[in-house]
Design a protein around this nucleic acid. Structure first.
Lengths: 191, 191
DNA sequence: TTCTTTTATATCTGTACAGAAATTACATAC
DNA sequence: GTATGTAATTTCTGTACAGATATAAAAGAA
């Protein structure tokens, strides 16, 4: 065998570069452990690719109750507002069923405007609910976090937008896909 | 100098161990950059003290407001990381500015669906805000309570629906008319 | 004395590097 | 032909380690 043959016999061989490069850094041990747990769940990449906005944790406390008018306000033609039974309502109690499993996400994009989810809205997400067919879920598809309606067909899974301008997404075997929780409420600011 | 003296002349000297040990790990570069930004803001430790991992995993930490980092949240540049570092969100605090002046009402009818107000939604209404032009208000017209957009023209007042199927209402001199407050938020349930 | 500088430790920390993993080409068997 | 195994090649990745940093004792200065 000639020198040249020995030197370059398999051009193009070799491990392919990672799509996302990595870097070794030193971090506090507790944080390292948490990050590694997320890595095990394949949820780490969603951390830095959030197209959805910031994530909050919910603190449930301060029994601040405001009056609730149980009678309904007509958004249609006005009708006699007869019975108003006054009560009080704590928003935390009312909106958060599973305190330990609930988190908040802020929305960007208008792909769900038909169900009343607009950019800037705050979503209340319950992780303890099972993402059944038709539910609005927080999904992580190939590292991208989005809010979509989950459609489970017999052979495939769809992530459907609620806006004609956006196509439905078909989840294939090759995709990395998981759900983070079911959206229970949308808080939309009008100010 | 004797061997023993050379070997141990300053017992107790040496750098003290870190209160929180660290570990070198390899992470995706974009995440590394995000973490380093937080580190520059001295907000990194808040990440794991607040159980941020659980937040990402979808759980809510129960109000871990340590006075330590509340003092650190001093006047800096406002950034999403601020909300991060607290890691908690109280819906009452977040949604109710004037506690004594706020009440809730529930919606029927879909005349306001274009602004994301659907039947069954819960409205948060602040009575202390002045119902200026263009605001969504709770209005009482001839004893009937409705939610509409307020349009003040020079000679007349309109109550406008946000749905093409509904006509605008012109408030005349003969009508008994008052507003009860300005709608600040809509809470829309998806379950 | 008291303060400052030097020296000896002890631990921390960024990163270079050895070995692991991934990928292609080639050889061999059937 | 094609399936399987082996070698070559390239990049990735955990971690060991050299140098940086922090600390306390000892020495020196005032």
């Amino acid at each position: 065998m000639s020198q040249a043959e020995i030197r370059k016999r398999k051009p193009g061989a070799g491990r392919k570069p990672n799509p996302i490069p990595t870097k070794a850094i030193r971090l506090p041990l507790p944080l390292v452990q948490k990050l590694q747990e997320l890595q095990n769940c394949q949820k780490l990449d969603a951390l830095y690719r959030v197209d959805i906005g910031e994530i909050f944790a919910g603190k449930v406390s301060s029994a601040l109750r405001s009056p609730l008018f149980e009678s309904r306000v007509q958004a249609g033609f006005p009708s006699p507002a007869d019975e108003f039974s006054e009560g009080t309502l704590d928003l935390n109690d009312h909106l958060i069923r599973h305190k330990a499993a609930t988190f908040f996400v802020r929305v960007t994009g208008d792909s769900m405007k038909n169900v009343g989810i607009f950019p800037g809205d705050l979503l209340i997400v319950d992780r303890s609910l099972t993402p059944t067919n038709g539910k609005i879920v927080i999904a992580v598809l190939n590292g991208e976090m989005t809010v979509k309606r989950l459609e489970k067909e017999k052979n495939r899974v769809l992530l459907c937008a609620e806006n004609a301008d956006y196509p439905d997404i078909i989840v294939t075997e090759e995709d990395s896909f998981s759900t983070w929780g079911v959206v229970t409420n949308v808080i939309h600011s009008l100010i």
